[in-house]
Amino acid sequence: MTSTAGVAPVPVADPVPDLTEDPPRGRRLTGYWLILPAAIWLGLFFVVPFYSLISTSLYDPNGSVLTGYEMTWHVANFVDAIGQYKSQLLRSLWYAGVATALCLVLGYVLAYAIAFKAGRWKNLMLILVIAPFFTSFLLRTLSWKLILADDGFVVNALQAVHVLGPDARLLATPFAVIAGLTYNFLPFMVLPLYASLEKIDGRLIEASSDLYASPLRGFFKVTFPLSMPGVVAGTLLTFIPAAGDYINAQLLGSPNERMVGNVIQSLFTTQGDYAAAGALSVSLMVIIVAAVLVYVRTAGTEDLV
């Protein structure tokens, strides 16, 4: 007989779970219960208002606030609204595009400095970037109205060095509107750029210099391509709200600088032309969505996921 004394028992492997087996019904429903609050929120505050806006854009244009509006599926509202307010629509896209480009240049420099040069002051600089959000958007825009006033320091200083003529002004000009848009939406550009730059491995930048690339060439070949997710996110977060903004044009501009947001606000609240206001709003949304899809497809988004 063979003795088994002193032989360690062979451990029995746990049975391999059957991954093809369906989970219990309660577990399958857990995910749906978790997204239910968000779905209700989106349904109440996005889907319902969006449906109402589309319905408004198809009202009979002959209606009014007093007589009421009738749903007639009047698609010509879109053609009429775009034809009548084409200049304000193009001006909004132009102002938003220029402000976004300025935010990209200024914001990239600031985000780069915070990510790579700030050292122990990094957290303080980030706080200073988001500090304007602690005050009202309206107050921040009014402060620019005081800064660019005809009798303000900026205008007086520029007139003293003969950059501006004695009767020239900055307020109520395209410059003032674009400056306000750039200032108000700059943090929306800086934060995504910083998040993207901060994740870049410094050894990759050092490797470019080891391969005899100049700092400028290394930036455009290594740093900037790796920060493209932040560039794409920042430009979208800046351009989209800037295109629909009306506060800056209202406070810093003149009737010649009215943007499409001012027109929509006036049609809804002053003129009571709900059909034109709805059609113009939907048209602006479609144009922005189309531009965003083209931009995202061109820029590439594989690193944004």
Rank of each mutant, 00 (worst) to 15 (best):
W144C: 07
L158P: 01
I127V: 15
A172V: 00
G165P: 13
P174H: 14
L42Y: 11
T141A: 08
G244C: 00
A38K: 01
V129R: 02
P23K: 04
A99T: 07
A213N: 13
S136W: 02
G244F: 00
E198A: 12
L251M: 05
W94R: 15
D273K: 11
Y183W: 12
V12L: 15
V222E: 05
V161N: 11
T72E: 02
I114F: 06
S208P: 07
E257P: 08
R27M: 06
M285A: 15
P187A: 04
V79Y: 04
L211C: 14
T30V: 11
S266D: 10
N256V: 11
S196W: 08
G300L: 00
G202N: 08
W94S: 15
G119K: 11
L181C: 02
Y51L: 12
A101H: 04
A157I: 15
P17V: 14
A113W: 06
I130H: 07
P49N: 02
L211Y: 08
A118D: 05
S52W: 05
L146T: 07
L126D: 04
G202A: 07
T100M: 12
L139A: 08
G165L: 09
P17Q: 01
P132S: 05
L236E: 03
V292L: 11
F153K: 14
T141W: 09
Y112A: 13
L148T: 14
S196T: 05
L158R: 05
D303F: 02
V154E: 13
G272Y: 02
N256Y: 11
N123L: 01
A213R: 13
K122L: 05
M259T: 07
D201S: 10
F45N: 03
G234V: 03
M228C: 09
Y32N: 04
S283K: 01
L104Y: 06
S196R: 04
I127S: 13
K117T: 10
V109G: 15
L34Y: 09
S196L: 07
K145T: 12
I205E: 14
W73I: 09
E70A: 12
L89M: 14
T141I: 13
F46L: 15
Q88K: 04
A233F: 05
T270H: 02
L252W: 01
L36M: 15
G180D: 11
F116R: 11
A291C: 15
Q265M: 09
L58Y: 07
P37K: 13
V163S: 08
L293E: 09
M259Q: 05
V10K: 08
